[in-house]
């Protein structure tokens, strides 16, 4: 019904002589789980950092909700509805799980002199914790959580800001097989009410959950399409997937 929530046009990022991301375009829509796969060094994380505003692109433009945010810093994009998680767990370990999520909501909802009020229990933060299943541990220090729970907290912090777009940078990194399945299911449900970009190495998860898949190789988009098309592509099989998927 509406256009894409997040759209990237011809993104290129050079580091010195190296082209990490080359002419990548993509569009994310609410209700769609869009996965980006590719071998190590394909430029997937650089792409996330370009979209989130961590680093500026060398060329290309980024639109968030129709607004050109190419020059906007990361925190402005976050306020405009872009939530992200990090490949390496990046939380406030000395604070409680609840405070981690609450700060996520505060960033999105409290401005200026409003900051001089006392913090309250934020409904959005509590909902976010409940959605990832961390409500019971809300009062614990984040530093005491298991690796799997920390990965969930990563997602909860992003959700607490009530974003329209979620950039999930390898949310399953370091997870065992047991933990992977429920989190994959969670990510699938997140796509119901968000536009989700998922960077992931686990091919089973990607091909069973994603609506669209972009395959990146050496900074370029090799192919983009629904999982069946990507799976069937000979170019993908020779360039990246080998015979594992077929």
């Amino acid at each position: 019904m509406t256009g894409p929530v997040l759209r990237a046009d011809g993104l290129t990022r050079r580091f010195g002589g190296i082209v990490a991301v080359s002419d990548v375009s993509l569009a994310l829509e609410t209700g769609t789980l869009h996965a980006v796969i590719g071998p190590n060094g394909a430029g997937k994380s650089t792409l996330v950092n370009l979209l989130s505003g961590d680093i500026p692109p060398s060329e290309g433009r980024i639109f968030l909700g129709g607004q050109d945010v190419t020059a906007a810093p990361d925190w402005r994009r976050a306020r405009a509805g872009l939530g992200r998680t990090f490949q390496r767990t990046n939380v406030m370990r000395g604070m409680t799980v609840r405070e981690n999520a609450r700060l996520g909501t505060q960033a999105a909802t409290v401005r200026g002199w409003g900051l001089l009020r006392q913090p309250v229990i934020e409904e959005a933060a509590e909902t976010a914790l409940a959605r990832v299943g961390l409500s019971a541990q809300a009062g614990e220090l984040a530093g005491t959580l298991s690796h799997g729970a920390l990965r969930l907290l990563e997602i909860a912090i992003a959700l607490a800001g009530q974003p329209k777009v979620l950039l999930l940078d390898e949310p399953l990194a370091g997870m065992g097989v047991e933990e992977t399945r429920p989190i994959a299911a969670l990510i699938r449900t997140l796509a119901d009410d968000h536009a989700v970009l998922l960077i992931e190495h686990d091919m089973d998860v990607v091909f069973s959950t994603a609506d669209r898949i972009t395959v990146m190789v050496e900074g370029r988009v090799l192919i983009e399409g629904p999982p069946e098309t990507v799976r069937a592509s000979e170019a993908v099989q020779t360039a990246y997937l080998g015979r594992e998927v077929g």
Partner: peptide, 19 residues
């Protein structure tokens, strides 16, 4: 609380949308 967040993890605070 936001200042303590910055001391604890500035990059995450920015990614959340804190100025």
């Amino acid at each position: 609380h936001a200042l303590l967040g910055i001391r604890a993890n500035e990059s995450r605070m920015r990614a959340m949308g804190h100025d």
